[in-house]
Simulated scan of single mutants.
Amino acid sequence: MVGRAHYYEGHSINQITLPVRVFKLLGVDTLILTNAAGGLNPEYAVGDIAVLNDHIFLAGLAGIHPLRGPNAEEFGVRFPPLSDAYDLDLRRNVHKAWKTVIPPESKRRLHEGVYAFVGGPSYETRAECRMLHHLGADLVGMSTVPEIVVARHCGIRVLALSLVTNSAVLKPVPRGDDNLLQTKDQSELDTILQEGKANHEEVLEAGRSAAVDMQRVVENTITLIFGD
């Protein structure tokens, strides 16, 4: 695939995961997914890459789930476990590949973390970011998890990588009764409120600047796993 269909575009949860079932029928046994994500972990910088090792699927817990309804027995069991969703051997090879292709002096860092899926398309509020971070999420984004759930239902091994394209704002919104704000004019108030706000163009630019490194890491990982 080149890109993907997103839930926020108006597709159903079953439509966005259909390609994974097609992969299974074509004999695919390993799925590598990449995405752009907001960094909830303060240690993550824009341009860093994170290997996913777990996820938080609040929509799924609320019933917006790709396996809801009659089970497709030809693909998998009724109640698939997800405690092993992110293949350990695949993750191990990413770390090996990283040391091979990314020079030690690079500012870009590799992490392992937990990804929280949200429906979108609006970026998260500050309170939502703090909630997700308190729940244990290091990253937040609008894709990937539904496909991973279906892949694991099909018995497909999964590797997922997130590129940190923006840092989520965890600091609470300034209060209107803050004494320090009473003498500021409207432009100064706007500047304070805009601090750290997610900007889609900045997200795209961060993705473009890191794309080559992401591709090199994925290609080298594939070589380590499957050979030349």
Rank of each mutant, 00 (worst) to 15 (best):
S167Q: 13
G155N: 02
L159N: 02
R91Y: 09
R175D: 10
Y44W: 04
V28Y: 08
H55L: 05
E188V: 05
N93Y: 04
Q215C: 07
I225Y: 06
I192M: 09
R109S: 14
T183W: 02
H200Q: 08
G119D: 12
A59G: 03
F117H: 11
L204H: 00
V140K: 01
M1A: 13
I222K: 12
G63V: 06
V164M: 09
A50W: 10
G176E: 07
P121Q: 14
K197I: 14
A198G: 02
D48L: 07
K184A: 03
R78Q: 08
S122K: 10
G176S: 03
Y7R: 09
K197L: 14
P66A: 07
S167D: 01
V2A: 15
A137E: 13
G69R: 08
L193C: 07
T100P: 00
V158A: 09
V150C: 04
E201R: 08
D213C: 07
Y44N: 09
N166L: 06
P121F: 14
P104A: 10
N71D: 10
E74I: 15
T221E: 00
H11A: 08
Q15C: 05
H95A: 13
A62T: 12
H95Q: 13
P66W: 02
E105P: 00
R152Y: 13
A168T: 02
S83Q: 11
L135T: 01
L110P: 13
R68P: 03
A59V: 03
H133A: 11
L67A: 01
L132I: 06
N166Y: 02
F23W: 07
P103Q: 01
D213S: 11
S83C: 11
T183D: 15
L163I: 06
M131K: 01
G38F: 04
G176N: 13
L159A: 02
T191Y: 12
Y8T: 05
H95N: 08
W98A: 06
V28K: 10
P174Q: 08
P103G: 00
A206F: 05
Y123C: 10
L31Y: 05
P42M: 08
M142D: 01
L61D: 12
I225C: 07
T191D: 13
R68N: 09
V217H: 00
E74A: 14
A72K: 10
D87V: 01
V217A: 01
L193T: 10
E195R: 13
K184T: 05
I222A: 14
E105Q: 14
D54E: 12
H134F: 09
V169A: 09
N93T: 03
G119A: 15
E219S: 11
K171Y: 12
